[in-house]
Design a protein around this nucleic acid. Sequence first.
DNA 1: CATAGTGTCCTATTTGACTAGAACACTTTT
DNA 2: AAAAGTGTTCTAGTCAAATAGGACACTATG
Lengths: 132, 132
Amino acid sequence: MNLLEDTWKLEFHSGIPVYKQIIHHVQAAVAAGRLVDGDQLPTIRALHQQLNVNPNTVAKAYRELQHLGVLSAEHGSGCYIAPGAAEKSDGLSAREKKAKLTDLCARFAAEARSHGISFDDLVAQLKRQHPA
Amino acid sequence: MNLLEDTWKLEFHSGIPVYKQIIHHVQAAVAAGRLVDGDQLPTIRALHQQLNVNPNTVAKAYRELQHLGVLSAEHGSGCYIAPGAAEKSDGLSAREKKAKLTDLCARFAAEARSHGISFDDLVAQLKRQHPA
DNA sequence: CATAGTGTCCTATTTGACTAGAACACTTTT
DNA sequence: AAAAGTGTTCTAGTCAAATAGGACACTATG
């Protein structure tokens, strides 16, 4: 499979950082089974050229994916999907996951508001509780 | 009641902006009934002096509180709790609300993670869905 | 009317996240 | 060995949010 042939619709003005969008694309591909253990990912320079972003931005995304355990970067060779990467997500497709995420956020925000908790407090507390 | 006598433990290194902490303190006091309609809040300069923060930081908090409808600022006179401010929050005390918030965040994060949704996606989606 | 006290506005300064560019270090291939 | 291709690292540049400092406008009090 070749990620380069996909339509990576990066949204530069969505407020979501580009490097996180890249992460999300890869995670979705892994979750959907389009990328499996050992598959080689597009080169940092290849993605940088295709997406018109800085090589370092792609590198940051790959670095974080590496830290998440979904990819293994080998210096001088390339980046490959790490063994067991698919197990780090459930079997939902990207669309299903997005729908679930939207629903989850809606319920969460509604419950918080019903308790008189402000949205900002919510995010602040979430960040504080976040393990990593 | 006198807010100045309270222990306003501002956490400067918590990642939560100071002005939001001030907002939270006032909201908690209103929710707990320690502040009622017509009560005068500490002067911007008084709070600035007590908390060792810039007057403008306090002003920003008060401005936002005013926008939230919990306080009414009268130019040249002072800031007062707006009528009906208490109705904007439920009957929980600050401590109870905080406990509820912590619990809510924990359940939320756990559910998201069980679906393979990353924490950052969570926050990004929350922000996008947030009406205001 | 003058003075002191009040909220408001305008303009930096700081801080952190994000992105960018170039040089470096390692592997593979020839 | 040499060359090309790879990930890595270092040093800025950009932008927004948060904070800071001072000047302004209004009100109450004497």
